[in-house]
């Protein structure tokens, strides 16, 4: 609320965790950003069947807590499913975590952690 004025001023990038197609598309839209320097950080992570859950978790924590230049984190819903606990327990307003559908996994509103809250508030 009040403290947010300072916390979101520098946030200007989007980050994405998703499958190859989603990431490619979003990068084409121009959201990709690689920091300069030897420890170059990318603001995207490609997840495939071989990617370990811990790696996703790490990227999620990195994008949501460690980096403070991310305004919006886009995450494929089926990827979010794999780290559902972290996604559900993350309730800070910044960065906004947005679950997006992927090509092979159509969007299911039932699983979205924000929509779940919406439902809970109005579904009584």
């Amino acid at each position: 609320m009040a403290a947010s004025a300072t916390t979101y001023k520098d946030r200007q990038f989007l980050a994405v965790i998703g499958d190859e197609d989603s990431v490619t598309g979003l990068l084409l839209a121009g959201i990709g950003h690689v920091t300069d320097g030897p420890d170059a950080q990318r603001n995207f992570l490609v997840v495939d069947a071989k990617t370990e859950t811990s790696a996703i978790e790490k990227a999620f924590v990195n994008f949501t807590q460690e980096r403070n230049d991310i305004a919006v984190l886009l995450i494929n819903q089926h990827v979010a499913e794999r780290i559902r606990h972290s996604v559900d327990s993350f309730a800070d307003p910044f960065p906004a975590v947005l679950e997006i559908p992927s090509k092979d996994h159509p969007y299911d509103p039932e699983k979205d952690s924000v929509l779940k809250r919406v439902r809970r508030l109005f579904g009584e």
């Binding site: 609320m1 979101y8 200007q12 989007l14 990068l27 990709g32 995207f44 910044f94």
Partner: peptide
């Protein structure tokens, strides 16, 4: 595409909107 990504072209700017004394950010 992944390898050629360097600088973000698409960025967001955060703005504030005042609703009854609550500052809501607006990207």
């Amino acid at each position: 595409v992944q390898e050629s990504a360097k600088q973000a072209r698409f960025r967001v700017r955060a703005k504030q909107e005042n609703v009854s004394g609550v500052f809501l950010p607006h990207f």
